[in-house]
């Protein structure tokens, strides 16, 4: 009998969305996904309560929220340890290393032809597997997590940056030649600005990789804090609401990280066709 109200909520929300989607205004384009998301949460809550699903299998959204609200200091400590210390510092170091490498090999077509296929190849590998090795080398604290993140983000950014440095067209290069501009002048005034959309593409792809690297590396050893540590221990204690609260933190952190990089991108590459308004 409890299936009926669940079905009713679903059909009602979907019907409402169908009507709103047909209007297709700016407001409904925001409303429709929000209603859909809210419906899923309500259905989740209803299903868990109606069928008395044990919280060790699937906690209800309200339980997750209660755990989130009740563990703010703990979650904040994990966030600082994993996201700020591990992921962010590793991401910054990896990105800087990739940019510097791209510029360093820019003058050598030989090195580019050698490094690019290897870079593309490595970008497709399960690099996360080096986590146990780096944890052995750099210890349990955030330094080993940052090292994993450096290796994970390095190649995607390198490949994008090299493509970006090659992205000027013949006309722009000819112009520089008629002004008899030197190598560094063309690099700073023409090729680096032209490479920015490519660089930011690489930076955006790697925000998620950085979080994954930092969290998963903690499964191989960590101090007694950190999101990966918390997830694996809370799973062991069957404290699923806390696990989901950590996942909520990871989702918020991932969206924020990506959003901030996108915001900087729109400031830096305001001139690119994809960013113009």
């Amino acid at each position: 009998m409890s299936a009926l109200p669940i079905l009713a909520v679903w059909l009602g929300a979907w019907g409402l969305n169908a009507v709103l989607a047909r209007l297709n205004t700016r407001l409904t384009r925001i409303l429709v996904p929000l209603i859909f998301g809210a419906t899923l949460l309500v259905l989740w809550e209803m299903i868990v309560r109606a069928y008395a699903v044990p919280s060790v299998i699937l906690p209800a959204p309200s339980q997750i929220w209660a755990s989130f609200a009740g563990n703010i200091p703990l979650l904040w400590g994990d966030f600082v340890q994993t996201i700020l210390k591990g992921a962010l510092s590793g991401w910054v170091m990896g990105a800087l290393a990739a940019i510097v490498t791209a510029i360093a090999i820019d003058r050598s077509p030989f090195l580019q032809r050698g490094l690019l296929p290897i870079g593309n190849f490595v970008a497709a590998l399960p690099i996360i597997g080096i986590a146990p090795i780096l944890v052995m080398w750099f210890g349990f604290d955030w330094q080993s997590k940052a090292a994993v993140v450096v290796v994970m983000v390095f190649f995607p950014i390198l490949v994008n940056m090299v493509a970006g440095l090659a992205a000027t067209d013949a006309l722009q290069r000819d112009l520089m030649a008629t002004w008899s501009a030197g190598y560094w002048q063309s690099l700073f005034k023409m090729r680096l600005p032209a490479a920015m959309p490519f660089l930011f593409n690489g930076l955006k792809i790697t925000t998620t990789l950085a979080l994954i690297g930092a969290i998963v590396a903690e499964f191989f050893g960590s101090p007694t804090r950190g999101m990966g540590f918390r997830i694996s221990t809370a799973v062991g204690q069957l404290d699923l609401p806390l696990v989901w609260a950590e996942i909520l933190v990871a989702a918020i952190a991932g969206s924020l990280f990506y959003g901030i990089v996108s915001l900087i991108e729109s400031r830096v590459t305001f001139w690119h066709p994809s960013q113009r308004r």
Binding site: L171, D174, P193, W271
Partner: peptide, 9 residues
């Protein structure tokens, strides 16, 4: 040149 070739940034 035939195209303006102005730098968009």
């Amino acid at each position: 040149f035939q195209a303006p070739g102005l730098y968009p940034w």
